[in-house]
Design a protein around this nucleic acid. Structure first.
Lengths: 358, 358
DNA sequence: AGCAAAATTTGAATCGATCCAACGAAAGTG
DNA sequence: CACTTTCGTTGGATCGATTCAAATTTTGCT
């Protein structure tokens, strides 16, 4: 028993086995990276030495520095890491990103952090060739950080109009408009909107001024789309309650309480995410309100869950898979040019919408 | 417009800005990593130079090589990358792994690959401090690859008895036994088993010889646990159909077709995963068979979906969160010692099990 | 054998940082 | 004023590989 696992440290480098095998490190390196160009006898000798010394193959750390390319993309969010595995939208997006990565042989690094300084450090020290940034709350800070790394990056669903950042998003105005149009076509005239955040850390009914000063352009655009269509058919949009949620169950339910406390509750609800819409479905069913007969709902996103809910959800589907693919492509084939892409959305009519009663 | 994004290449290194600021690279380095030890005047000068030259901060590639630690753990599977976001068990596990990582400030690299050589390369070149290996199909090859990297790694749910591999798993025999005991206690005597794979790429009814030669010890153990309990109450286990699935909907349904084609269909089904059990719930409901009155089902895993299915699923819960935490801890605080941990499981009785009819 | 061409091998340079022993200058002390 | 501390800065060594032009060995051919 000389020293199999004995020598505690593992300072066995390529140079060590080169010396042991009596070849130069150049040759030793070739044995691993281009075995076909070294004579068989030598190759075997080096491999034997490597085996004997417990060498685990060329250390990627060294290779990396030389090669420059990490061959991995970082996916960043300001949410906790588990967001990637919990949130329905994130999951679908990640699934499509990972498919695109699989196809090109790139790896994925998840970047996130519990607190803010940690986040900065994690972004600064992430070993990646570029970032895909999930823009939810706190997205702008994230974009800032990513930009500072001076690596290619694209923002998903960016809530900013800064033309200097590459972003892939959907046409929120058109999508929202489509949703509202579907409901007005069915004959609805009494609406309520369950919105995504307009600004950080706030929930509740929003005033027009708050909308105008919204931090998140995406949210504002969706509202614009909704209201445009509603006013087109003569609805007094100033009377339509718009409740800002944090895109979670608690705030959505609080919003519903508020909305349905009104004397003339809405017959149709425009939800800015499927997540909110699904919570709404649940809440209404607990209240013994029938969907779609008492209340119609249209969601936004088109996550898989929306197809199997009870009832299934009418929604505006984003081309999530396509967005993921484009994002990966943008990073990997980055040629320095900044581009913004606005993808089309699609109305998917399912069982949660119908003409109003009477 | 001199050259903001003009200079196509970005060979701006720490040394460059050191030169530009007229300081040594040692000092320049300190400006970023230990700003407090350099005189303010100098610090500002260097920062200004960095800003002017578009320096994105110290490149982690360089730092990495010097520091040795990547501060990230690799999570590997032989499945496609999207497995992490699709499979319920994987998702819960990942959520707990990521929480543990968040807490310690470590990042996560997802390692996987479309094909086999790609996999080997990806493992060999992953920039991580250690691996957590998801052992599903093809797990042994993955373990082999990971072991060759000579990095700390732990296997999750390892299907091998190799004592040299650190592994975290559950007591499959005890768990399965618990599941079967629950059903026999309720009075069931006619069973069928929907199994996980015993060996690669095969589905269908399995013979005792196939079980004995099973590649996957985990699957075998669960079966052993089931049958042990069944024979204890006098069931002729040679008559109990055991259908090997690929842990997906298609093969599970095929298994159900086979099982329920029998003259005396079972009154109770033992499913080796919640995924299979949930598919079974669906299939039975489509067949107008009532659960639990016509057929009882007990799953295995304890994924969140099992609590909200219709009816909710009686299952054997694995301490998934605990397993994730332990795995991360094992990698990060690795002191070279190999350990195997067998965690206890728990029977959770819900609505999918009841005494048989009559 | 003699010589050119082909096949291998060598060793220095490089990737981009961090670390540290040594050194110079400024501040403190008797 | 001479002498020790303290503070900041310097520049060489190092991390672990890959690359490539030049040197060396083999092979092929007459």
């Amino acid at each position: 028993m000389a020293s199999l696992t004995a020598g505690n440290r593992r300072p066995v480098r390529l140079a060590d086995i080169a010396k042991a095998a009596g070849v130069s490190h150049g040759t030793a390196s070739n044995v691993f990276s281009r075995p076909e160009i070294v004579r068989e006898e030598v190759r075997e000798r080096v491999k034997a030495a490597a085996e004997a010394m417990g060498y685990g193959g060329p250390d990627p750390k060294g290779r990396l520095l030389r090669a420059g390319k990490v061959n991995a993309i970082g996916v960043a969010t300001a949410e906790p890491l588990s967001y990637f595995f919990d949130d329905p939208f994130a999951r679908v997006m990640m699934a499509s990103i990972s498919q695109a990565c699989d196809a090109t042989g790139a790896g994925i690094s998840l970047v996130s952090a519990a607190n803010n300084e940690q986040l900065a450090w994690n972004i600064q020290s992430a070993l990646v060739d570029g970032f895909i940034v999930f823009c939810v709350e706190g997205g702008s800070r994230l974009v800032e950080l990513a930009r500072e790394r001076k690596l290619p990056f694209v923002a998903l669903d960016l809530d900013s109009e800064d033309g200097a950042v590459a972003a892939i998003g959907v046409d929120n105005i058109a999508g929202a408009s489509l949703a509202a149009r579907h409901l007005t076509d069915l004959g609805h005239r009494r609406f309520a909107v369950l919105a995504l955040p307009f600004a950080d850390g706030r929930t509740g009914l929003v005033s027009p001024e708050q909308v105008r000063s919204a931090t998140y352009a995406g949210t504002r655009d969706r509202l614009t789309g909704y209201l445009q269509e509603l006013s087109r058919v003569g609805v007094d949009t100033s009377k339509v309650p718009v409740y800002e949620t944090a895109n979670d169950a608690a705030s959505a339910k609080a919003g519903l309480e508020t909305i349905f406390a009104a004397k003339e509750p809405p017959t149709a609800i425009l939800a800015m995410s499927d997540k909110i819409a699904l919570v709404t479905l649940e809440w209404l069913s607990a209240r013994k309100l029938n969907v779609p007969n008492d209340v119609s709902i249209v969601g936004f996103d088109g996550v898989p869950e929306s197809a199997v809910s009870e009832p299934s959800l009418t929604t505006i589907a984003q081309p999530i898979a396509e967005m993921g693919r484009l994002a990966v492509k943008a990073i990997l084939e980055n040629d320095g040019k900044v581009s913004r892409q606005l993808l089309p959305v699609e109305l998917i009519v399912r069982a949660s919408s119908a003409p109003p009663r009477g």
